[in-house]
């Protein structure tokens, strides 16, 4: 599932994938894979991304129960 909340939070901060990747110490392709839903990051990387974007884990990564 695509992570559009991450993409919009990154865009709101006016950061490119490359810039965010550099801030959290991963490759641009990894940020791209997370946004596309192709890769599930570890909690450590989720926290690093949240800190870089000034968001909480809930705001970026929590998915509501579909029921």
């Amino acid at each position: 599932m695509k992570n559009l909340r991450l993409k919009s939070a990154r865009a709101a901060k006016d950061l490119s994938q490359e810039a965010l990747a550099s801030l959290v110490g991963v490759s641009r392709q990894t940020i791209n894979a997370i946004e596309k839903g192709d890769y599930n990051p570890t909690i450590r990387l989720c926290i690093a991304i949240c800190r870089a974007l000034g968001k909480t884990l809930d705001e970026l990564f929590w998915e509501e129960d579909p029921k």
């Binding site: 110490g25 991963v26 490759s27 570890t42 990387l45």
Partner: peptide
């Protein structure tokens, strides 16, 4: 100090 490969890699 930075890792050579990230966790996905």
């Amino acid at each position: 100090k930075q890792a050579d490969f990230d966790e996905r890699q």
